[in-house]
Simulated assay, not measured.
Amino acid sequence: MIRIAIVEDEINYQEQLIGFLRRFEQDRGENIEIETFTDGDGIVENYNAQFDIILMDVQMRFMDGMSAAEEIRKIDSEVVIIFITNMAQYAIKGYAVDALDYVLKPISYFPFSQRLNRAIDRMKKRESHFITIKIKGGVQRLQVSDIYYIESLGHKIVYSTKEGDFVGSGTMKDLEKELASFHFFRGNKGYLINLEHVDGMNENCAVVKGENLPISRTKRKAFMEALSNYWGEVIK
């Protein structure tokens, strides 16, 4: 069961999205539960992380989609947000609230289905991929998408995650290889950074959850290309 919210104040677009979701449901063989809202404040009120994907109109009468997404992100860091808009420049602003994608009005089924496929793949990837690390006295299982970055400190490996820091053993070379398919990039000898959590760049540092992580001069160009490709992947 995939739980999808449609937040759209124009009834004709709301009905079109419902129709597209039902068609997608048949095409992909998914079971989709749909709930609709006509304004941002409607979904924000009593929100309790009950949705997997939110299709969010940007321009609405009382609370716009960007403001609603900001409020939702305070509660739910996992829900996949796709903006519905007639202005492409909102895609850039969407990075601030970790929006996966955007769909331009007028909406057509093929690009919509592509974005929905990507959203479901991201949702399921988050659910199912873990790594097990060796820690003092035992092992710890970490969800890959919850790892912000990994730091090498002498003979120790420190995992900075949503649940706090974990100190383990191993080598950065092995971790770089293991996590390569999950958008992790080696910013320098000391850091392996999850591009999913990069909020921006500050001079020669990547900004990750308020931390400035240095990117070496020799790695900067490749890092920026990897980051641009990752950001392009989620909005193309």
Rank of each mutant, 00 (worst) to 15 (best):
V79W: 02
M60H: 01
D39W: 04
D98I: 11
D64W: 06
K125P: 00
K125E: 13
G94Y: 03
A68L: 10
M87W: 09
Y149M: 09
H129P: 03
K134S: 02
R115V: 02
I147Q: 02
V139L: 13
Q114C: 12
K136D: 08
I72E: 07
V80F: 04
K136I: 10
G94P: 03
T85L: 06
E30Q: 09
D57T: 05
G40W: 02
T85F: 05
A49G: 00
Q89I: 14
D57M: 08
F83M: 14
M63L: 14
A96E: 14
T36P: 03
Y95A: 05
V103D: 00
N46H: 15
A88H: 09
M66G: 08
A69V: 10
I34K: 09
F130R: 13
Y149T: 06
Y149P: 02
Y47M: 11
I53N: 07
F51T: 09
V144P: 00
R73Q: 10
P106W: 08
G42K: 08
S113A: 15
T132W: 04
Q114P: 01
I75Q: 13
M66R: 08
P106C: 03
N31H: 12
H129K: 13
I131W: 01
D101W: 03
R115S: 12
L104F: 07
I120Y: 08
F130N: 15
S145A: 13
V79D: 02
Y148C: 01
V144R: 04
D76K: 10
D101G: 09
L142H: 00
E45N: 14
E33D: 14
I82W: 01
H129L: 03
Q143N: 15
Y109M: 08
K93N: 11
Y47W: 09
F37L: 08
D39T: 06
Y102V: 08
V97Y: 03
R61H: 02
T85N: 09
V103Y: 00
V97N: 02
D52T: 08
D121P: 05
G40Q: 08
L142Y: 00
F112W: 09
K134Y: 00
R61A: 11
G65K: 10
E71K: 14
G138A: 08
Q59T: 04
I92A: 13
R28F: 00
H129S: 09
N46E: 13
I34L: 10
K125C: 10
D121A: 15
S77M: 11
I131D: 03
E30H: 14
E45M: 14
I133P: 01
A91H: 07
K105E: 01
E45F: 13
D98F: 12
M60C: 04
I43W: 02
E71P: 05
A49F: 06
I135L: 05
I133G: 02
D98P: 00
V44S: 03
Y90M: 13
E35I: 14
E30A: 12
V58I: 15
Y148Q: 06
V144A: 07
I72S: 07
Q59A: 12
L100Y: 01
E45H: 13
E70N: 06
I147W: 01
M66P: 06
R73Y: 05
N48C: 07
E70V: 13
L116G: 05
F110C: 12
I147N: 02
K125T: 13
F110W: 11
L104C: 04
I54D: 06
D98R: 15
N86H: 10
T132P: 01
F112L: 09
I54A: 10
A91K: 11
